[in-house]
């Protein structure tokens, strides 16, 4: 696949991947749809999506390799400096922003609940992640 893809081309490919990995219909995959809350993704689905994104956007000249924790950070909730009483601390929020610049935190900042963090991963954030990586 070409490295000079438009936003629309990336979105179409991501939609195809999500339909295949999650067994959802095309019209369910909207930019604002949460992968977990709206599309029903479970933890193994994130690995499936990782693999499918890597395969779709790799070229022989430029492999598209997603490192572990790059797209979906892991084990953040076990560090007491990052999470207190079930909510992300300021340090936790800062780390989330650093590790996941492809996510929109505007609504989540007021809530900060660990239980809701997986809902941050939307179709748009996945497209933004792919776009950023392709541009680098």
């Amino acid at each position: 696949m070409s490295q000079t893809l438009t936003h629309e081309e990336i979105y179409e490919s991501v939609r195809e991947i999500l339909c295949d990995a999650l067994g959802v219909d095309e019209d369910e995959v909207t930019p604002e749809a949460s992968l977990t809350k709206d599309l029903g993704a479970e933890s193994i689905d994130f690995l499936d999506i990782n693999f499918k994104v890597e395969k779709k956007f790799s070229t022989p000249e430029k492999p598209f390799k997603i490192n572990q924790g790059e797209l979906f950070p892991e084990n953040l909730t076990s560090d007491p400096s990052l999470v207190k009483d079930g909510k992300f601390t300021d340090a936790g929020m800062e780390l989330l922003r650093t590790k996941m610049p492809h996510v929109d935190y505007s609504a989540f900042d007021a809530d900060r609940s660990v239980d809701n963090v997986s809902e941050l991963f939307t179709v748009k954030s996945l497209c933004d992640f792919v776009g950023r990586k392709l541009a680098n």
Binding site: I44, L47, D48, N50, F51, E54, K55, Q68
Partner: peptide
């Protein structure tokens, strides 16, 4: 094996 990393494999 189609793809594999530290987390698992397809």
């Amino acid at each position: 094996i189609e793809r594999m990393d530290a987390s698992g494999a397809s």
